[in-house]
């Protein structure tokens, strides 16, 4: 990219128009994943796994072989694919309801086995597609359709931090939480994806990039405000950063 380039068409994605709501960051994240897979020369041989949630239809967006998984099962499906197609980049793309709730066991055990897959984990602290119900990641006090008085610690627990949880699992090689609320952070997020796929292709084990995302429709605020809300409320609870890095581990050894 030369210094005059301010924008370029999407790569690694089909021509289909996204169905995502205004202000949702799925579009940005899709674009980053497509770009990284293209730039690393992986897209032609990549195999992706779509999950259940707002991104369920991403198999029509990513320009590579795609398999659609049952709710929460994407890491198990990706495990099956990767074990029989070892040299291909295999990734899942999952929301927080899918990964942190119904699919927590599959995510933890894929990390535990050190599966050489990359998980794109999009955390917007709510169930989007089903209409805004409380997720394990919903913040304390956050109103949803199933926590109408605001989430309370009593009875529903405190929000689950997936990256921190997975950092305790030996097989997890690379874990980073990123945000895409401004260009600087978008660039940083792209670097994280590059590193995640690099980790996979070097056979170093499980990699996951957690994206802080938005849901203006179900949060009940404007798109612009939703980015601010994520910065002001989510990032303090879900701090950005690297939680596990294979290069660091090697240095430590």
């Amino acid at each position: 990219m030369n210094s005059d380039t301010v924008y370029r068409p999407k790569q690694g994605l089909t021509d289909r128009e996204f169905h995502y709501c205004p202000g949702c960051t799925h579009g940005i994240i899709h674009k980053l994943v497509g770009e990284v897979l293209t730039e690393q020369g992986l897209i032609g041989e990549a195999i992706g796994v779509a999950s259940v949630g707002c991104s369920v239809l991403n198999y029509v967006y990513f320009d590579c072989d795609m398999q659609q998984a049952a709710h929460g099962r994407a890491p198990a499906v990706a495990t099956g694919i990767k074990r029989v197609r070892e040299n291909h980049a295999v990734f899942t793309y999952q929301g927080d309801g899918d990964l942190a709730s119904i699919g927590l066991a599959e995510a933890v055990h894929a990390a535990h086995r050190g599966e050489n897959i990359t998980v794109i984990f999009v955390n917007n602290a709510i169930y989007g597609m089903t209409g805004g119900q409380m997720a394990p990641t919903t913040l304390i006090g956050q109103k949803t359709t199933t926590s109408p008085f605001g989430r309370e610690k009593e009875g529903t627990g405190e929000p689950l931090r997936v990256s921190e949880l997975l950092a305790t699992v030996p097989g997890a090689a690379y874990l980073e939480r990123v945000s895409v609320h401004d260009p600087k952070h978008v660039r940083k997020a792209k670097k994280a994806l590059e590193k995640a796929f690099d980790t996979q292709m070097k056979g170093k084990g499980f990699s996951l990039v957690e994206f802080i995302s938005t849901c203006p429709v179900n949060w009940g605020i404007q798109p612009r405000e939703s980015l601010d809300w994520a910065v002001e409320n989510m990032i303090p609870y879900y701090p950005l950063g690297v939680f596990k890095d294979p290069e660091k581990e090697e240095e430590d050894d």
Partner: peptide
């Protein structure tokens, strides 16, 4: 692969069979 559950095992089957 010894999966973490029958649920995971059949979904691994789905992945590998799909591939």
């Amino acid at each position: 692969v010894q999966a973490e559950s029958e649920v995971a095992a059949i979904n691994m089957v789905y992945g590998a069979g799909g591939a």
